[in-house]
């Protein structure tokens, strides 16, 4: 199957009067359709920059980024790429429903049927009663779900998630992570998640890329495989919360922990 997303020797640097900072260099990897990829690495290794590049908000200095084999033309590629930021950034002056309309509104595709679909999506994900509420009336977890629906409203094929759970308290975080994983899997989307939380990455991803310290490079790629998943019928993945209880979890945790540690001992 041709990859949904392909990065080929991508390099990106920031320019300031004090000098140039190379954020990422020689980044190559692919993501298959329907795959959930997590990217981990030490803070400041260029994880968020990588997502901005994939989204088309920035252009790489060198290398290519291909979505379905074609270079990315405009930010978001007309709604084909959805980007979920760390904070929900719901607009306080809009209702939850109107916040979810934002994407189609910007691309001038907000038809009555699109409105209906988005409203139905809010109902499906437990926000039906809050459609006309202001975001301030929602809990942290509900806000993050509303932000995800705003991202999904454009029906993106590829979802980029920039530590979307980091602003939540631990308990909410676990359950929202569970929710969001289920929503993305049910919708059959391809996703790239950036996180600094090892256990979160292991509990949610099909494959994990470890980046080195700045300038970020691909250090290793670890496929995540739980035997409980292949033995269950239709190879369904188990929920992130359940994954945390499986024996392989600590194995992956130790493996990735060592990868991250060894990087700190020998900074490049």
């Amino acid at each position: 199957m041709p990859p949904k997303l392909a990065l080929d020797r991508v390099k990106c640097s920031y320019h300031r009067p004090e000098g140039e900072t190379v954020a990422l260099t020689n980044i190559s990897f692919t993501v298959s359709p329907g795959e959930f990829l997590a990217i981990i690495g030490p803070s400041g290794c260029g994880k968020s920059t990588l997502l901005s590049l994939i989204c088309g908000l920035m252009t790489p200095d060198e290398g290519r980024i291909l979505l379905d084999g074609a270079p990315i033309q405009s930010p978001g590629q007309q709604g084909r790429i959805g980007y979920m930021l760390q904070k929900d950034h719901l607009f306080e002056w809009r209702s939850v429903l109107s916040n979810a309309f934002l994407g189609p509104e910007l691309l001038h595709t907000l038809t009555p049927s699109a409105k209906k679909e988005i409203s139905d999506m809010l109902v499906t994900y437990g926000l039906g009663a809050f459609q006309h509420s202001k975001p301030s009336e929602l809990s942290g977890g509900m806000r993050q779900r509303a932000a995800l629906i705003r991202t999904l409203a454009l029906k993106p094929e590829l979802l980029l998630l920039d530590e979307p759970f980091s602003a939540l308290d631990y308990q909410t975080r676990l359950s929202v992570c569970d929710d969001i994983r289920a929503i993305i899997r049910n919708a059959g989307k391809t996703a790239v998640l950036v996180t600094h939380d090892l256990s979160e990455a292991i509990s949610i991803a099909d494959r994990i890329i470890v980046l080195t310290q700045r300038p970020g490079q691909v250090k290793t790629i670890v496929p995540i495989h739980f035997s409980a998943e292949s033995s269950s019928q239709s190879g369904q993945a188990v929920r992130p919360l359940e994954r945390r209880n499986l024996p392989e979890f600590s194995h992956y945790f130790n493996l990735l922990w060592k990868e991250l540690q060894s990087d700190e001992q020998h900074p490049e």
Partner: peptide, 19 residues
């Protein structure tokens, strides 16, 4: 980040202004 959100959804500078 709110401005980044508008651009990531395919909006323009005019959208940043009005939205």
């Amino acid at each position: 980040d709110k401005i980044k959100l508008i651009y990531s959804l395919g909006g323009t500078k005019k959208d940043v202004l009005t939205k």
